[in-house]
Simulated scan of single mutants.
Amino acid sequence: MGEFWSTTILNYFIAMGVVLGGSVLGGVGAFFGNDPPMDAMLRLSEQLKIWALVAALGGTFDTIKSFEVHILGGELHQAFQQMIFILSAFFGAHVGTVLIRWLIQGEV
C-alpha cells in the first residue's frame, strides 16, 4: 500500500509543479515579450491544467487503457486506484492554479 500513496502524492505534486512552473516562467517570458505578465500567468495557469494532468499521469491513454482493462477484468480495486491517481493529479493542478491566482491577487 506504500507504493499507492507515494504515487498518489507524486501525481499531486507533479501536476501542481507543472502549473506553477509553467505559469511563472510563462510570466517571465511575457515580461520579456512586453506583454502583461500577470495576465499571462493567470491565462497560462488555466491552460496548463490539462497538460499537468497528462504529465502527472504519464499520458492519459495509458491511464484510460488501464482503467478499461481493470473494469472489464473485474478488478475494481485497481480501477479505483487509477481513479484516485486521476483525482490526485486534478487536485494538484487546481491547487497550482489557485496559488497563481493568490500570488497575482486575481479573483479566487
Rank of each mutant, 00 (worst) to 15 (best):
M16R: 07
G17D: 06
G17W: 03
V18D: 04
V18N: 08
L20D: 01
L20E: 01
L20I: 09
G21S: 09
G22H: 02
S23G: 02
S23V: 02
V24A: 09
V24S: 08
V24N: 06
L25P: 00
L25C: 04
G26V: 04
G26D: 06
G26Y: 05
G27R: 01
G27T: 06
G29V: 04
F31T: 12
F31R: 13
F31H: 10
F32I: 04
G33S: 13
N34V: 10
D35L: 13
P37C: 05
P37V: 06
M38G: 12
D39L: 14
D39W: 12
M41F: 07
M41V: 04
L42D: 11
L42R: 15
R43T: 13
R43H: 08
L44V: 02
L44M: 13
L44T: 03
L44D: 01
S45K: 00
S45C: 10
S45D: 08
E46F: 06
E46Y: 13
E46N: 14
Q47R: 08
Q47A: 14
L48G: 04
L48V: 05
L48N: 00
L48Y: 00
K49T: 08
K49V: 12
I50W: 09
I50G: 07
I50H: 11
I50R: 11
W51C: 15
A52Q: 04
L53A: 00
L53M: 11
L53Q: 05
L53V: 07
V54Q: 11
V54A: 12
A55W: 03
A56W: 05
L57W: 03
G58I: 04
G59T: 03
G59S: 06
G59L: 03
T60D: 08
T60Y: 00
F61L: 14
F61H: 10
F61D: 12
F61P: 10
D62G: 15
D62E: 10
T63N: 09
T63E: 02
S66I: 02
F67N: 06
F67Y: 15
F67T: 14
E68I: 14
E68P: 01
E68K: 13
E68A: 15
V69F: 07
V69I: 15
H70N: 13
H70L: 07
H70G: 01
I71E: 07
L72N: 11
G74T: 07
G74H: 01
E75N: 15
E75K: 14
E75M: 09
E75F: 15
L76K: 12
H77G: 14
H77S: 14
H77D: 10
Q78G: 07
Q78C: 08
F80D: 12
Q81P: 00
Q82N: 15
M83G: 12
I84D: 00
F85Y: 13
F85H: 14
I86H: 08
I86E: 07
L87M: 11
L87T: 05
S88H: 07
A89G: 05
A89M: 01
F90W: 04
F91Q: 13
G92S: 05
G92L: 07
G92E: 02
A93Y: 05
H94M: 14
V95C: 03
V95Q: 09
G96T: 01
G96Y: 02
T97R: 09
V98Q: 10
I100R: 03
I100E: 11
I100G: 03
I100V: 09
I100M: 04
R101A: 12
R101M: 11
L103H: 10
L103C: 06
L103T: 10
I104Q: 03
I104C: 11
I104R: 09
